[in-house]
C-alpha cells in the first residue's frame, strides 16, 4: 500500500481528516525548506505538498507567484527540490510528500528520468497542474509503475465524466479546487463545495482533499467536515512573505497557524 493510501486509511480509522500544508521549495531560500517540512509534521501535518517553482505559474495567484520568483532567484529547480525531499526522507519515513507544480520542468528533465528520480527520492505523489488526464497517459504510466500516485485536480465546473476520468487516471487522493480562480483567491461558498463533493463522491472512492481559499482555522474545520483533507498554501506563504527578513519568525507563525488548524479540525 502506498504511503498516501496508508495515511488516509489510518486517518479514517480515527475519524480524522488530513492536514496538507503546501510550501514552495526554496522559498524564501533553499535552507529554509527542510527544517520547515519537519516542523510542519510536528505541528500536525499529515501530508506535505512541496511546490516546484516555475517561471510561469499560470494557475497561481500573486502570493505563490512571488514565492516561485524568490525560489528561482536562489536557483531552486526540480532537481534541487527532489534533493530536499531525499533529505527529508532520511529522518521521516511516515509522512507522504507530494510534488506539486507545472509540467514543463518535468518535460525538460524527461518523463522517465523524472519518474526514476522521484522514485529514488521516495516521492509519494505528483500533482501537475497543467497536465490533465488527456495529456498525461505516458507520465501516469511511468509514475504508477513506480508506485507513485498521480494526483489530479477537479474544479467546480468539472463534469461527472471528468470526475470518472480522474478516478481512473489518478490515485492517492483527488485535489478539489474549491473555487474558480487562482490560488489564494476569494471566499469559499461552503454550500457549493458541499454540493459538488456529493457529486464527486458519487463517482470516485478516492479521498478528496479540498484547497484554494482556506485561510484560517475556522474554514479549515468547516472544510474538514466536508472533505477528507484540507490543503493550505497561500495563507502559509503569506507568513513567509511578511517576514522575509526573519525566516525563523515566519516558521513559528506557520507552525502556530497549522497547530490552530489541527486543533480546530480535530475538535
Amino acid at each position: 500500500m502506498s504511503r498516501l493510501a496508508a495515511t488516509f486509511e489510518e486517518l479514517s480509522k480515527t475519524g480524522r481528516k488530513a492536514l496538507i500544508p503546501f510550501i514552495t521549495a526554496g522559498d524564501p531560500r533553499p535552507d529554509f525548506t527542510l527544517p520547515m517540512m519537519h516542523a510542519m509534521v510536528e505541528a500536525g501535518a499529515d501530508v506535505i505538498e512541496l511546490g516546484v517553482p516555475f517561471s510561469d505559474p499560470m494557475a497561481d495567484g500573486p502570493v505563490i507567484q512571488r514565492a516561485s520568483e524568490r525560489a528561482l532567484d536562489h536557483k531552486m529547480s526540480l532537481r534541487r527540490t527532489l534533493a530536499i525531499a531525499t533529505e527529508f526522507r532520511k529522518t521521516n519515513q511516515q509522512t507522504p510528500v507530494v510534488l506539486m507544480g507545472y509540467v514543463h520542468p518535468i518535460e525538460a528533465m524527461g518523463y522517465e528520468d523524472f519518474a526514476n528520480a522521484a522514485q529514488r527520492a521516495e516521492i509519494d505523489g505528483v500533482l501537475t497542474v497543467d497536465l490533465p488526464p488527456e495529456e498525461a497517459e505516458e507520465c501516469v504510466a511511468l509514475l504508477k509503475a513506480r508506485d507513485i500516485d498521480p494526483i489530479f485536480l477537479l474544479a467546480p465546473n468539472s463534469s461527472d465524466d471528468r470526475i470518472k476520468k480522474m478516478d481512473t487516471a489518478g490515485s492517492g487522493y483527488i485535489y478539489y479546487v474549491s473555487l474558480k480562480g487562482v490560488t489564494g483567491a476569494g471566499h469559499l461558498d461552503i454550500a457549493d463545495v458541499e454540493n459538488k463533493l456529493n457529486l464527486i463522491r458519487a463517482n470516485t472512492r478516492l479521498p478528496v482533499a479540498i484547497g484554494f481559499g482556506v485561510k484560517d482555522a475556522q474554514t479549515a474545520k468547516t472544510i474538514a467536515g466536508i472533505g477528507d483533507g484540507v490543503v493550505i498554501g497561500s495563507a502559509l506563504i503569506s507568513k513567509i512573505e511578511a517576514n522575509l527578513d526573519d525566516p525563523e519568525r515566519a516558521k513559528s507563525e506557520i507552525i502556530e497557524l497549522l497547530k490552530s488548524m489541527r486543533q480546530a479540525m480535530d475538535s
Binding site: 490533465p132 488527456e134 495529456e135 477537479l154 474544479a155 465546473n157 468539472s158 479546487v177 474558480k180 480562480g181
Partner: peptide, 20 residues
C-alpha cells in the same frame, strides 16, 4: 480532434479551463 500536430499542441491547462 484533440489539437495535436504530431507531438505538439494539445490541451495543457488547469482543470478549471477544461470546460471553457
Amino acid at each position: 480532434e484533440r489539437g495535436h500536430f504530431g507531438p505538439y499542441g494539445g490541451m495543457f491547462v488547469a482543470e478549471t479551463l477544461m470546460l471553457p
